[in-house]
Every structure is written in structure tokens, then in C-alpha cells.
């Protein structure tokens, strides 16, 4: 009976890369996160959607970067030494997301993730749920919606 038990355990947990936007903590499923890198030169792209900050060079390939705070309707804050670009991947699309700071990789019990009903506004569709760990709240993000592959 060891194997099923293991499976259950894995099914019940999700590893999340947690990061900060202003004072709130957000998270992506670690399976979607490719790497985290420091801020580099971002080239502005004319005519692109306003939440696309520009493009960066990631080891020779050109990658779009999303200003996550702008995308989520949060107020802008200046870059700091902690500012990072989280490179995420969904299907065959890779993009970078600018975040204020990456906090940690955290394992959440799926039972502790509530469906997102707390916030009721237009950014709701970007959120898949809210995870609780001790007294921290981690807002889980819907990557496909943020990238803009869904609806719109």
C-alpha cells in the first residue's frame, strides 16, 4: 500500500515559487517556472500591449517581459536590488514577469488553497486560488490568463 499513499501525498501538495508584488505575496506553480534572473536591459517594444514591458535577451533568444503589477492593476513601484524577472513557460510560450522580489519556494497543501472568491473585480480571472501557509496568504496566479492566451 506504499505506492498509493505516496501518490496521494504528491497529489495533495503543490510547490510554488512565491514572490512579492508591493506588499502582497503571489505564486506560480513551480512546474511553470523556468528560471529566475536579475533585472537586465529591457528593450521597449512599440505598439505592444501596455502591460508588456519589452523584450530581453535570454541567452541569445528574445523573450517578452510582462510588467506583472501593471497586468494585475497594481500601482507601480520603482525597481530595487530585489527586483527579479521570473521566466515562466506555458505550452510553447516563454515570457518573463517582473516581480518586486522572489521570496521562496514553498510547498502548499492543496487543501489549503481556497478558490479565489475574496476579490471580486476584473483581475479575478488572473487568480486561480489563494494558498494559506501559517499566517501567510499566497495568491496563486493563472499563467495562461496573464499571458493573454485565454479570452480577450
Amino acid at each position: 500500500m506504499a505506492t498509493p499513499e505516496n501518490n496521494v501525498q504528491v497529489d495533495n501538495e503543490v510547490q510554488v515559487v512565491a514572490f512579492k508584488l508591493r506588499d502582497e505575496e503571489y505564486g506560480f506553480n513551480i512546474l511553470n517556472v523556468k528560471e529566475i534572473k536579475g533585472l537586465t536591459d529591457i528593450t521597449r517594444v512599440p505598439f505592444a500591449s501596455d502591460f508588456i514591458k519589452g523584450v530581453i535577451n535570454l541567452r541569445g533568444s528574445v523573450l517578452p517581459v510582462i510588467d506583472l503589477k501593471k497586468r494585475l492593476g497594481l500601482q507601480n513601484t520603482p525597481y530595487t536590488d530585489d527586483t527579479r524577472i521570473v521566466i515562466v513557460r506555458s505550452d510553447d510560450i516563454e515570457v518573463g514577469m517582473i516581480v518586486d522580489a522572489v521570496t521562496e519556494v514553498i510547498t502548499l497543501d492543496t487543501a489549503h488553497i481556497d478558490a479565489a472568491k475574496v476579490v471580486d473585480n476584473e483581475t479575478n480571472r488572473f487568480i486561480t486560488g489563494i494558498g494559506k501557509e501559517d499566517d501567510r496568504l499566497i495568491i496563486m496566479l493563472n499563467l495562461d490568463a496573464i499571458i493573454g492566451l485565454q479570452e480577450e
Binding site: 517594444v45 512599440p46 505598439f47 505592444a48 508588456i52 523584450v55 528574445v62 523573450l63 517578452p64 510553447d92 510560450i93 516563454e94 515570457v95 499571458i147 493573454g148
Partner: peptide, 12 residues
């Protein structure tokens, strides 16, 4: 290429 996300931009 600029990738799918930025496909179809004019001028660029």
C-alpha cells in the same frame, strides 16, 4: 522572432 505573444506587431 518576437514570439507568439508579440506576433503581428506592425512596423516591427
Amino acid at each position: 522572432t518576437l514570439g507568439k505573444l508579440l506576433a503581428g506587431l506592425k512596423v516591427i
